[in-house]
Amino acid sequence: MTTTVKPPARAGWTVPALLILLSVVPLVAGAFRVGELASGAPVTADNARFFAAPLPVVLHILAASPYCVLGALQFSPGLRRRRPRWHRASGRLLVLLGLATALTGLWMTLFYSIPAIDTGFVTVQRLVFGSAMAVALVLGFVAARRREIARHRAWMIRAYAIGQGAGTQVLTHLPWMILVGEYTELSRALLMGAGWVINLAVAEWFIRRGQRPRSVQRAREHSPG
């Protein structure tokens, strides 16, 4: 007689918890920036562009912060299964928040006075990945309307992976800051790009893992080797 051991309920919260943890530094940085603008902090070379035009960066932060947290909760299969109405309603909200995040990010890249180290290839990457995030959100929404669930899931995961770029970029920058120190324009661009590429690589693995037949997944999970 074979007994099937069900994984503990908390196992379904591992991925959401890790994604929220990944968001902590960007969330804190965003709250600091909003507080800085609201309190009338001294204007410096680093923040002058935000004081000159605060609306885009405030909208970006107010959209990106809940997008990262609410998006993480979508990775809980139990929550999606038990609360389908919540999943649909929050999914629509995520599309709006994600589009606001992507479009304000593109606006800031195009129209803010960007520091020299963030020009060139960094600017190109921000434009490419920001545009890709917006396109992925639209394609994910259209797929949901057509009841193409697997395609909807894939595009929304890709959009979320791009939106979480700032969190992973903290991890790609930290070793360089500790071991090397200052950035060059090239190293900065490579470290920024690495954050997005890593996220998209993990996203594609996650998508393909979810597309396996359930019988294959169960066989692999319970195989002795």
Rank of each mutant, 00 (worst) to 15 (best):
L127P: 08
A9I: 12
F51R: 00
P224R: 14
L97W: 12
P77S: 11
L110G: 01
P56N: 06
A102K: 06
R81W: 03
Y183D: 09
P115F: 07
V122W: 07
V25Q: 08
V57E: 02
A17K: 06
R85F: 15
L106G: 10
G35V: 04
A154C: 05
L171D: 15
W13F: 11
L179F: 08
P66V: 03
A64G: 00
G40K: 09
R83K: 14
R220D: 14
L62I: 06
V202Q: 12
R33E: 09
P213R: 15
R80T: 04
R82E: 13
L70N: 06
A144N: 00
L127W: 12
G12P: 03
A11H: 12
L93C: 04
M177Y: 03
T4H: 12
A52T: 06
V197Q: 08
A166M: 05
R212A: 09
A72W: 06
F121Q: 07
T2Q: 15
F129D: 14
G98Q: 09
L190Y: 01
G105A: 11
Q211V: 05
I149M: 04
L103S: 11
R49A: 13
S215V: 03
V170N: 02
A134I: 02
R158G: 06
G181W: 01
G225V: 03
N199P: 00
R49P: 01
A116K: 08
V57N: 05
A100T: 01
T44F: 09
L55W: 14
V24Y: 13
G225C: 02
V24I: 15
A159C: 05
P224I: 12
W196R: 02
G91Q: 02
F50V: 01
S113T: 12
R214K: 06
T172A: 14
W205P: 04
L190K: 03
A41W: 10
T172S: 15
T109I: 09
V122D: 07
R153I: 03
R88G: 02
G40L: 08
E36P: 02
D46S: 10
T101L: 14
A38Q: 08
R220L: 15
R82G: 10
L79Y: 09
